[in-house]
Structure formats: structure tokens, C-alpha cells
């Protein structure tokens, strides 16, 4: 254990039944070079303060559960290492723009509601049953959506998006990127249904292209690109509706 050093983890604490407002608490944590920030939090929970609350599951940047702000950056705490912050202090806070439920755990209900609005699943037309067999597509067709399908719903993009924090009804980067993922899938026919939510102030027009969402994504998804590539389609949809309403008025 000669490689063991000590680092200070400053965690945001908030217990709703006890605290009026969140505060920071410092913990001195011994660490070895291979220890992630998540392992630092686990050390605190196991040895220093069992009441520290945080979410985690896979420890390998797949489940998207352990997202938090580390020194102001939205990251997966299993993917960043304590050695990279030493000898400085590591400030760990819950993901920005979400209500704090307890300590480092946020309430993701708003995201889940918005995700449901964009129907993030295949809507084939005609409806298919298992008896129809596999719904095939070419590798080229798969390339059209493959990058956006890597989203793990970790919410880092929401924590990086000031528009989501400022505008409560904005659908946000991940929900819109997933809407794009299914719209771009050759097996899907749900574009018109999704367009209703995408082509609104809360949809693609709520994005002002800050671009941080794409920078912080741990899976290389480009939500800013996915959203803004849908703006021309949304504009055409508005035009189509105007023309249709004009025809209805004149007939």
C-alpha cells in the first residue's frame, strides 16, 4: 500500500428531514492510483459516514447511474480518478438543474416524464408481430442512428445545459437526441407523432446551441447536433401545417 495518499473530498450534503439548505462536508480519504471518485464516495460510506447518499451500479460507465458534478463538471464518478485531482480537493455535488433528493442523489422524474413524451421506441407501420420475423435493415441504415443510440440516460447533458435549468418545460438534450435516434431509424414510422413535441418551444426550438451537452457526453453522443439537425425538418413541418390550414380556410 505504498502508493496510498490522502485526498479531501468535499461532498454536498442535504437531508430534507434535517437540513434547511445544502452544505458542504469535508472527508479525508486515503486513495490508491486506480481509485475512481465513486470508490472515494464508497470509502466514505463504508468507513466515515454511512449516511452519505449517492447512486451507482455498474462501476464501468454503462449504467449511467453515478453522474454527479465533480469540481463543477458533470461526469460519471466511476469514470474519473482521484489521482487526477490530487493534491487539490475534489468537490462532489449532485447533478446541476435537478432537484436534490438527498445528498448527491437527484430527482430525475422530470427527465423521465419528458422522455416518455418523445415516444423513445420503434413505432413500425404497419404494426408488426413476432410472427413477422426480424425487422431487417442494412448496416448503412444502422449508421444513420447508431451514434445517438449509445445514450445511457446518465443526465450529464442536462446538467451541462443552462437552457434546461432556465426553461423548465424544455425537453432537454437526451430526450431530443433519442427522438432523433428513432426518427432516423429505417424501421420506424413515428416521426409525425414525435414532431408534435419536437416542433415546439419546449422542443428543438428551446435549444440555443450552447453545445456543452455534446462536450460532456461520456458515450460520444452528440445531442446538440441531433437537436439542430431537426430544426430544418421542424421548420418544414410548420410550413406544411400553415399551407394545410390555408387550404382548409379557403375550401
Amino acid at each position: 500500500m505504498s502508493d496510498t495518499r490522502t485526498i479531501v473530498l468535499e461532498c454536498l450534503r442535504y437531508h430534507p428531514e434535517r437540513d434547511e439548505a445544502p452544505y458542504h462536508q469535508r472527508f479525508e480519504v486515503p486513495f490508491t492510483p486506480e481509485m475512481s471518485v465513486l470508490e472515494g464516495l464508497q470509502y466514505i460510506k463504508d468507513h466515515l459516514d454511512g449516511s452519505l447518499t449517492f447512486r451507482w451500479s455498474c462501476r464501468m460507465a454503462v449504467c449511467g447511474n453515478c453522474g454527479c458534478m465533480v469540481n463543477g463538471e458533470p461526469v460519471l464518478s466511476c469514470q474519473v480518478f482521484l489521482r487526477d485531482y490530487h493534491p487539490g480537493c475534489v468537490r462532489v455535488e449532485p447533478l446541476d438543474h435537478f432537484p436534490i433528493q438527498r445528498d448527491l442523489a437527484v430527482d430525475p422524474s422530470d427527465f423521465l416524464d419528458k422522455l416518455a413524451q418523445v415516444a423513445p421506441y420503434l413505432i413500425p407501420d404497419p404494426v408488426r408481430t413476432p410472427e413477422d420475423g426480424p425487422h431487417r435493415q442494412t448496416p448503412q441504415q444502422m449508421q444513420d442512428y447508431l451514434d445517438t443510440s449509445a445514450c445511457i440516460n446518465c443526465l450529464l447533458c442536462y446538467a451541462a445545459c443552462p437552457q434546461y435549468g432556465l426553461k423548465a418545460d424544455f425537453l432537454g438534450p437526451a430526450a431530443l437526441a433519442l427522438a432523433h435516434r428513432y426518427n432516423a431509424d429505417s424501421r420506424d414510422a413515428g416521426r409525425a407523432r414525435r414532431m408534435e413535441v419536437m416542433n415546439s418551444d419546449a422542443g428543438v426550438w428551446g435549444c440555443t446551441l450552447v453545445g456543452r451537452c455534446s462536450e460532456v457526453c461520456p458515450k460520444g453522443v452528440d445531442p446538440a447536433g441531433a437537436i439542430n439537425r431537426n430544426k430544418p425538418a421542424a421548420a418544414l413541418d410548420t410550413l406544411r401545417r400553415l399551407l394545410q390550414s390555408g387550404r382548409t380556410c379557403t375550401s
Binding site: 447518499t53 432537484p99 436534490i100 433528493q101 438527498r102 430527482d107
Partner: peptide
């Protein structure tokens, strides 16, 4: 884990 008083920043 539910909280009746989530903190909004």
C-alpha cells in the same frame, strides 16, 4: 427513497 422536500437550486 422519497423526499417530500427536494431542494431546488
Amino acid at each position: 427513497m422519497t423526499s417530500t422536500r427536494p431542494y431546488i437550486r
